[in-house]
Every structure is written in structure tokens, then in C-alpha cells.
Design a protein around this nucleic acid. Structure first.
Length: 274
DNA sequence: CCCCAGGCGGTTG
DNA sequence: CAACCGCCTGGG
């Protein structure tokens, strides 16, 4: 039994910005501006209506989704705290409504391993096939969806079984990471309890996980909002808009939110939408 | 044919 | 330390 619940004023949660800013790969627009997606074996539809952000989900899941959508964080204050200088203020304006999702740890780690040297449509396609082939199906009002396969499940696979994903050289990275997580060699709950810097170094011990992927796993999977992943877009933005030697860490506890504002703003500008 | 796409790891200077 | 290069794949 799915029902609609009101979440917050629309300005505090933009489905488009939140689901298209590159932090997640399993939410899709239905064409009307509403997004449907799945997480932790649940499904939902997020949309805006009458000046409010709303969610359609099962009554018993609303607590999960409020947590997932990070409703406990004051984004007006967080946004304010990173509006330092003209450029960051502009990015924050363009990105207003982005929320950093509280994603599953393993899903985030695995997804960002797949993301390396890849474009977003292809990342989504690989993740989708991973779920369809090895996740558990379940019915939703929006059709059949799949869970993200557990590390334990992926750990049992051999490389040839991942061939249909066309993940290329990332396939052994995926299996290796799954085995490390499933065996406890890499303990993501323990990583979540570390400070961001230690967690990043810890995750980098995995093959195929470097600075960028580790920072994404820490920001999006462990919800450490001070983590600041630097990819080619951010590198260019820092070079062109910030003083030389600028340290992103100086942005404080919400540096990672600033990073998402920058990433989203630069991509919107490149696409001619901002 | 070329190049690039939200990198990483190994080698070389 | 930095700079380079190969790597799977798909799209422009």
C-alpha cells in the first residue's frame, strides 16, 4: 500500500538536482520530473507538487526514506556555510535543493569503483545490469525492481559471470572488493566509525580504489560530508575559479556538499542549462 | 582514424 | 616527488 507523504518545502529538495548531480545511479525520471528508484529493497517515487517535495512509498518505509533523503540535516544552514566568495555562492544558488543521500555503504563503494573513467549513462547501465542479474527482484507500483546485490553475493561470482556487464577492466576490482567486504577484510561499518581521512586511506587499500573513488565512497557511502572528491570537472573548476593553493578542506564540515554544488553547476553550465 | 569519459596502478626520470 | 601509459568499452 503506497501513499504520498510530504517531506519539506520544494526549495530544500529538488528531485532533479538530487538525483542527477552524480551521487547515485539508480534513480530515473519518469519524464514528468518525478523520480523513481530503489534502495535497500524498498522503492519510492519523489516529486514536487504545490511548492512541496513529496514522496510516494509504503507507510512503514517513510522513516527509512526520511533518513535516506537526509531530512535530519539543515541544508539551508549547510549551504550558507559553504557560500564563500562569488563563485561558490553562484554554485550554491544553482545547486540549491541538492541533498546528499545516505546510501548503502557497499552499493556506493561498488558503484564508484564502476564509475572510474566512465560516463554516467554507462555507469548506470552497468549498475542496472549488475542488479538485474544478481540482485533480488521485487514488485513495485512502478514495475519490477531489483535489490543491489550484496557483497556476499558478488563475492561468489567469477569474472566471466560479469562479462555481460561490459565493465571491462573494472570487473576484477568489483569482485575483489566484494570478497574483501564479505570476508570482513574490509569492514565498512568500522570505516564509518573512523574519521574521514582514516576511512579514505583504509578504503584505498582495495585494488582499483584510489583517491577519487575512496573519497566518493566516504562522502556518499559513509555520509562524511567533509570529504571532497576531486575529479576532472572539480580540478578544472578549482583551477579557473579559486585562488591557487586553495584548500577545499577549509570549507569545513560541509565541503562535500560544496563539491556537489560545484560539480552540478559546472555540468549544468556545460549543458547550456545554467 | 582520432579523442574522451567523474581513474588506477605500475613504471620511469 | 611528477609524468606518462595501458587498460575495457562505447560514443562523438
Amino acid at each position: 500500500m503506497y501513499e504520498v507523504f510530504e517531506l519539506c518545502p520544494a526549495a530544500e529538495l529538488s528531485p532533479y538536482k538530487t538525483f542527477e548531480c552524480g551521487q547515485c545511479f539508480r534513480w530515473n525520471s519518469d519524464g514528468s520530473g518525478a523520480y523513481t528508484g530503489a534502495a535497500s529493497g524498498r522503492a519510492a517515487r519523489v516529486f514536487t507538487e504545490g511548492g512541496a517535495a513529496k514522496i510516494e512509498c509504503r507507510r512503514g518505509d517513510i522513516g527509512f526514506w526520511r533518513e535516506y533523503l537526509d531530512m535530519g540535516t539543515d541544508y539551508a544552514a549547510a549551504r550558507e556555510s559553504v557560500m564563500r566568495g562569488e563563485y561558490l555562492t553562484e554554485c550554491a544558488a544553482i545547486g540549491e535543493g541538492i541533498r546528499i543521500l545516505r546510501q548503502d555503504r557497499w552499493e556506493a563503494l561498488c558503484s564508484f569503483i564502476i564509475s572510474q573513467c566512465n560516463n554516467i549513462p554507462r555507469i548506470k547501465s552497468i549498475v542496472e545490469k549488475l542488479c538485474a542479474l544478481f540482485g533480488e527482484p521485487f514488485e513495485t507500483p512502478w514495475g519490477e525492481k531489483f535489490t543491489f546485490p550484496s557483497a556476499e553475493r558478488v563475492a561468489l561470482l567469477e569474472e566471466p559471470e560479469l562479462a555481460p556487464l561490459h565493465a571491462g577492466y573494472r570487473a576484477p576490482y568489483i569482485i575483489n572488493a566484494a570478497r574483501a567486504v564479505a570476508s570482513g577484510d574490509i569492514d565498512l561499518a568500522a570505516a564509518a566509525a573512523m574519521d574521514g581521512e582514516s576511512a579514505r586511506k583504509y578504503l584505498k587499500t582495495l585494488n582499483g580504489v584510489g583517491d577519487k573513488v575512496a573519497n566518493c565512497a566516504v562522502l556518499f557511502g559513509l555520509h562524511r560530508l567533509d570529504a571532497f572528491p576531486v575529479d576532472v570537472w572539480i580540478k578544472r573548476a578549482l583551477r579557473e575559479h579559486m585562488p591557487p593553493g586553495f584548500d577545499p578542506k577549509s570549507l569545513g564540515e560541509y565541503a562535500g556538499l560544496a563539491q556537489q554544488y560545484m560539480f552540478f553547476a559546472e555540468r549544468e553550465k556545460a549543458a547550456g542549462r545554467a
